[in-house]
C-alpha cells in the first residue's frame, strides 16, 4: 500500500473543473447545472443539520426535553455554559487538552521529521525492514494493545500523568510515512553538495533539509493536533483524576452526569469542537492536503 498513496497530496489541490470545458447543448447543460446545484444544496443541508441542532441546543434555555422541533434558539442564552462551568473544572480540561495535544504534537512532529529524514535520505543497515515494521504498526488497532500498553505504562509509573498519553501518542507512525514521502522528493544532489562542502549530517538536516519542510511541518502539525485533540479511548484508560481529564473524556464524564440534559451536553460539545473547527477553517488547505495524503484513524 506504500506506493499507491497519492503522492501529489502535498501539492496544493488546484480546483480546475474539467467539465467546464466540455461543450454540449446549452439547454441540457442548464438543466444539468440546476440539478447539480439542487443536489449540492441538499447535501450541504444534510451535512450541516447535525451541527446546526448542536448550536441551537447549546444556546437554548428551558426544558431539555423538547418534543417539538426547534430550529432556532427560543430564548438565546449562555446559561448552559455557565451552569456546567460552575459545576465542573471545564477550564482545566480545556487547558489539559491544550497541554497534552500541544506537547504530543511537538514531539510527534519532531520525531517524524528526523525519522523521515533517516528513512528517506540516510543509508543504514536495516533501513527497509525497520521501515516496513513501522508501517505495519499503522495497522495495529488501539484496542488490540490496550491491555499490554496499560501494563507497560503503569510499570513505567506513568499512569495518572500526561506522559501516559503523550509518549504513546508521539509514536503515531503515520507521520513517519508522510515525512519520508515528502523528503524523498527533495533532490539528493542538494544534500550531496552540502556534504562535499564538509557539512555534517545534523548540519545538513538543520540548514538544508528543514528549511524546505514548511508545508510538511504544517501538515504534520495539523494532523497530529486533530488526532490528539480528539483522542479518547487511551486517555480514558490512563487519566483517572478528573482534574487531569482532557476534553473528550470530560465530555463523556458530563454525559454520565447530565444524562439527557442536552443543553449542557451540547454546550460542552460545542466548546470541545470549536477550536478544531476554527483551526480547520483557517488552515483548510493544509488539512485537505494532509488528509489527501494519509488516513485518519
Amino acid at each position: 500500500m506504500v506506493a499507491t498513496v497519492p503522492t501529489r497530496g502535498l501539492t496544493v489541490v488546484d480546483a480546475r473543473a474539467h467539465t467546464a470545458r466540455t461543450p454540449g447543448r446549452p439547454g441540457r447543460r442548464r438543466v444539468g447545472w440546476t440539478l447539480r446545484v439542487v443536489a449540492a444544496v441538499l447535501v450541504a443541508v444534510v451535512m450541516v443539520f447535525p451541527l446546526w441542532v448542536m448550536l441551537v441546543t447549546a444556546f437554548s434555555s428551558g426544558s431539555a426535553y423538547s418534543q417539538t422541533l426547534r430550529l432556532w434558539p427560543s430564548e438565546p442564552t449562555l446559561g448552559n455554559f455557565t451552569r456546567v462551568f460552575a459545576a465542573w473544572p471545564v477550564g482545566s480540561w480545556f487547558a489539559n487538552s491544550v497541554a497534552v495535544a500541544g506537547v504530543t504534537t511537538v514531539l510527534s512532529v519532531a520525531v517524524s521529521l528526523t525519522g523521515g529524514f533517516a528513512f528517506a535520505k540516510l543509508r543504514w543497515v536495516g533501513r527497509t525492514p525497520v521501515f516496513l515494521l513501522l508501517l505495519a504498526t499503522m495497522m495495529i488497532p488501539t484496542q488490540a494493545i490496550l491491555v499490554p500498553q496499560f501494563r507497560l505504562v503503569s510499570s513505567l509509573g506513568l499512569v495518572g500523568t500526561f506522559w501516559a498519553v503523550i509518549l504513546p501518542g508521539a509514536a503515531a507512525t503515520f507521520g513517519i510515512f508522510l515525512a519520508r514521502q515528502f523528503l524523498m522528493a527533495i533532490p539528493t544532489e542538494l544534500v550531496e553538495a552540502a556534504r562535499v562542502d564538509g557539512a555534517s549530517t545534523p548540519r545538513v538536516f538543520w540548514s538544508i533539509v528543514l528549511p524546505l519542510c514548511r508545508p510538511l511541518v504544517a501538515v504534520l502539525t495539523l494532523l497530529a493536533l486533530m488526532y490528539q485533540w480528539n483522542d479518547f479511548l487511551w486517555p480514558l484508560i490512563v487519566l483517572r483524576d478528573p482534574a487531569l481529564f482532557t476534553l473528550p473524556i470530560g465530555l463523556q464524564f458530563l454525559q454520565g452526569q447530565y444524562l439527557t440534559d442536552y443543553g449542557a451536553l451540547m454546550a460542552m460539545t460545542l466548546l470541545a469542537t470549536a477550536p478544531l473547527v476554527v483551526l480547520f477553517l483557517v488552515f483548510q488547505r493544509y488539512f485537505v492536503q494532509g488528509l489527501a495524503t494519509t488516513g485518519l484513524r
Binding site: 497541554a99 514531539l107 495518572g160 500523568t161 500526561f162 506522559w163 483524576d241 482534574a243 487531569l244
Partner: peptide
C-alpha cells in the same frame, strides 16, 4: 512545551 511542563500538574500526576 517547557512552559506547559512546568505549569501543569498533569505532567507529574500531582494535583
Amino acid at each position: 512545551g517547557a512552559a506547559a511542563l512546568s505549569g501543569c500538574a498533569g505532567f507529574t500526576g500531582q494535583t
